[in-house]
Design a protein around this nucleic acid. Structure first.
Lengths: 346, 346
DNA sequence: CTGAAAGCGCTAACAA
DNA sequence: TTGTTAGCGCTTTCAG
């Protein structure tokens, strides 16, 4: 490719003036005569001058670029987050470099390094599933690189974070089912070591408590319930065939809900009349042909926006200003299918 | 933020040598003594030196960055494309800047300009729906900016393109239905002015012809059939209530297929026994609970890969080398639900 | 109002 | 084997 970039120098030479004057004219500096200004802008227009942001970045040691590291792009939640990030970044004059770790620690380390080399002004991160060592983040954080974690956050780094209120989401879902008149709400639990699992379970319990429902251990399926649609289906079927079956189900994720739905259908139960399903979900449900499922949507777009805002705030803070890291907890949106939005925060 | 970047100068000063020596040592230049080399790399390691790609970009007038402009990120097809782009880019040492036009012409123009300013080495584009004027692309293309269009391509610009073989996809779908034994295959057509609509219709006709089926105009629904799920449903219902109803349906997109499915279900038809549906789709179907629908998937990942490869090839071509623009037509993947992949090209 | 000069971080020719 | 110098494109003192 022939490198045909028009530079300030070209304009200067053409007009027989110095490049500093051109520079000033271009940015409408007061101390430059109207004639020169006009001549410069006209020529710039004519030759289609495009300022070189690379040079600017070097000069200012600021690239007006932010980096994003996510586990995968092809995922409704994450692509929604990127979209939110892009929204805020664009309006604040930043470009967005996207790197996907593919859930690989090694790749994440490389991505981090690459973004640091690129001198992005800050980094937004959702960690890979593999990541347990945080040195690659810590080393650049020590150097003062602004960073904000979202969704999959790193506890050991003292920076801003954006997460979802799993407790409240679970509470909302359960309350919704109770308010709809369901009596026996089963729960397909997630892995017990995950914080989100615990929080969701707590939200479920809290709703039961608040509505004076007894907690019934026989309605709780612990273990690998939500690992796959298959297991969820089997476990639900077992529950449905028990002597005192549930009339509703809290599903911890898409797989759990899909499995539960299939089990119910096979048993000939009408959804949601005989058996209601509600729970956490990502993309899958929004396109489901069966509108009978109420879901808590992760507010991905908002999460991206919030994370980007926090990051940019930190990037643009004055030298001496100290930004206190802040963890923002976003409410989920309860979406009732087959009717309008019940409790949307968007 | 305090700007704590270690530079070559720092290393040089610390070691009492010149920065050029440091530079050479860092890149393992032959003409530098082993001792110096070791001293330099050790110190670089210790101080966690990270090369400044911005400075490098300026020096080399090459940013090792490619820009992507897409209508929206939150879309299975497009996010898949990005993923494919990222895959190739990463392995070739390029970063990816993503800009979404949000289907807005104005925004697309701004994005193009921003990427040009950023001195990306090339741009990958899928045009916004609004775009009918191409000057923003042409002006940078004239300057020699490598660019490749994908999916929503621009005909007036002489550069490489990657598109999907709609004709073949439609042919495959129709043939599949015929081979499954369906006799009367209805067709909900797309807008007649779109090239893809025509090509898909041609593929449909070709399959009929090849299997000696008569083309029956009464099975074709022209017009706004695929505009919304609602209209698709109504139109399908009408067909199903006609004296000589179809036993299968070619759906031009997700909406058409969903509408058709609902109409069939309301009429109590079993899918796919009484009424089969097959057609083009994006994400929606892959998560459908009803496995009875055969779809042609747009090969998004591959499209991203191919587009990125074409772009990088052009970027890295020698000065004097002339790259002949090339339009790559990708085959679609016929995916039969409820069974394994029948004709996958991945 | 305008110009000359320095420097952001890095590399590569040229000198030593 | 190492150092000096110049320059990528731009802005910004400092001098005129």
């Amino acid at each position: 490719m022939k490198n045909n970039h028009v530079t300030i120098k070209h304009l200067a030479r053409e007009l027989g003036i110095s490049s500093s004057t051109v520079s000033r004219a271009l940015k409408d500096h007061p101390n430059v005569s109207p004639e020169t200004k006009k001549a410069v802008t006209d020529l710039a227009e004519k030759l289609n001058y495009l300022p070189n942001s690379i040079a600017l970045s070097l000069r200012r040691s600021k690239s007006n670029t932010i980096g994003v590291i996510i586990p995968e792009i092809v995922h409704f939640f994450f692509s929604t987050v990127i979209s939110g990030i892009e929204d805020i970044a664009y309006n604040a004059g930043y470009s967005v470099i996207v790197a996907q770790s593919n859930e690989s620690y090694e790749r994440e380390v490389m991505d981090t390094r690459a973004l640091a080399n690129h001198r992005v002004d800050g980094i937004l991160i959702s960690m890979s599933r593999e990541t347990t060592d945080y040195e690659h983040f810590e080393s650049i954080h020590r150097r003062g690189m602004p960073m904000v974690f979202f969704d999959r956050v790193c506890d050991t780094i003292n920076c801003s974070k954006v997460i979802v209120d799993d407790f409240d989401g679970a509470f909302q879902v359960t309350r919704h089912l109770i308010q709809q008149g369901y009596k026996r709400i089963a729960y397909l639990a997630g892995p017990e070591n995950l914080i989100i699992s615990k929080q969701r379970m707590d939200g479920y319990c809290m709703a039961l408590e608040q509505y004076n429902r007894a907690f019934d251990e026989s309605l709780i399926v612990r273990g690998r319930a939500a690992d796959s649609e298959e297991t969820a289906k089997e476990l639900t079927a077992k529950l449905l065939n028990s002597p005192n079956p549930p009339d509703a189900m809290f599903a911890i994720n898409d797989r759990a809900a899909l499995g539960a739905m299939k089990a119910a259908k096979e048993k000939g139960l009408k959804i949601p009349q005989d058996f209601a399903i509600a729970g956490f979900s990502n993309w899958e449900f929004t396109s489901m042909t069966d509108p009978a499922i109420t879901t808590v949507d992760q507010p991905g777009f908002k999460m991206g926006q919030e994370a980007a805002k926090l990051l940019i705030r930190e990037i643009e803070a004055e030298e001496d200003e100290t930004i206190i890291p802040e963890t923002r907890i976003l409410k989920t949106d309860l979406i009732v299918r087959g009717s309008s939005l019940v409790n949307g925060h968007l």
